[in-house]
């Protein structure tokens, strides 16, 4: 298989993971990913499922460059480039986005300022002109309309005092304005009631593009009723042990991880 042509049109390889090994805090005894392979192409939605402790969130964190994890083997190629060589902010500027399972509260910084800083960091990287607050507000309003949300939490401090649902929605709003090539959603469904889940899923669907890809990390099949995956992978013991179409998720729901 070709490891990334760098092409982003439908079908081009966006992410190619080969034999990935990773540990927590550079502790060899604490290996979590043990030779993981995964290829994600433009236009696809992949679901990574697996029991607790299987390494799902570690995979998401490693792809975003979380400093708590150390990659001890394997390669990750993103649009033909070595992703593991990049600092977290470079990955973000190159179009990798991680929706956190536990979004962090940033006191004293308004959401709108945070969003604009993030968008401008990406624009600057691409050689585009940075947006002033007024221009940015227009971009933001367009995006909010696209996903059908209002601007109620723009002037609040980032995630500060947000409910669980608001935090998850805020992650998706960031994703909407940053327009990532590769979006990784880490347990975005956790802690959401069914209405909030639908709202978030609808927004993710509205943002789908043929030249982008999405990796959905989830414990339950529930989210996949709303964000329909092209491929489903079962992660266990730090490796992908089974892959299939969307019907695999239903099978998992029925038989459990042990049964599959």
């Amino acid at each position: 298989m070709s490891t990334g042509s760098g092409k982003r049109e439908a079908g081009g390889v966006i992410l190619d993971i080969r034999g990935l090994h990773a540990t927590v805090a550079n502790d060899a005894k604490n290996e979590i990913l043990k030779g993981l392979d995964l290829t994600v192409r433009a236009g696809e939605v992949h679901a990574i499922m697996g029991p607790n402790g299987s390494g799902k969130s570690t995979l998401a964190a490693v792809l975003a460059g979380h400093p708590a994890y150390t990659v001890t083997g394997g390669t990750v190629t993103y649009l033909g480039k070595d992703l593991l060589e990049m600092a977290p902010e470079e990955r973000a500027r190159e179009g990798v986005f991680l929706a956190f399972q536990y979004p962090v509260a940033i006191r004293g910084i308004t959401n709108s300022y945070f969003l604009r800083s993030a968008v401008n960091a990406v624009r600057k990287h691409k050689g585009q002109e940075e947006l002033d607050p007024l221009d940015f507000l227009q971009v933001l309003e367009t995006k909010l309309k696209q996903i059908g949300w209002d601007d109620s939490f723009l002037n609040r401090a980032v995630n500060d005092g947000f409910s669980g649902g608001e935090k998850k929605r805020n992650e998706i709003l960031q994703m909407a304005v940053l327009e990532p090539t590769l979006a990784i959603l880490d347990e975005t469904d956790s802690g959401l009631d069914i209405d909030a889940l639908k709202t978030v899923a609808e927004a993710v669907n509205a943002l789908r593009r043929p030249d982008h890809a999405t990796v959905v990390v989830t414990h339950y099949q529930r989210l996949l009723n709303y964000i329909v995956p092209d491929r489903v992978h079962v992660l266990a013991g730090g490796r992908i042990v089974k892959s299939g179409g969307k019907e695999l998720a239903l099978e998992l729901e029925e038989k459990g991880y042990v049964g599959v």
Partner: peptide, 25 residues
Amino acid sequence: ALFYLQSRGLSAVTAKSLLTYGFAA
């Protein structure tokens, strides 16, 4: 929190300044 800001494209230096400002604010 630093990683969160960096994962949105902000440099380590900017992330540090923003968090420090938030603390002062």
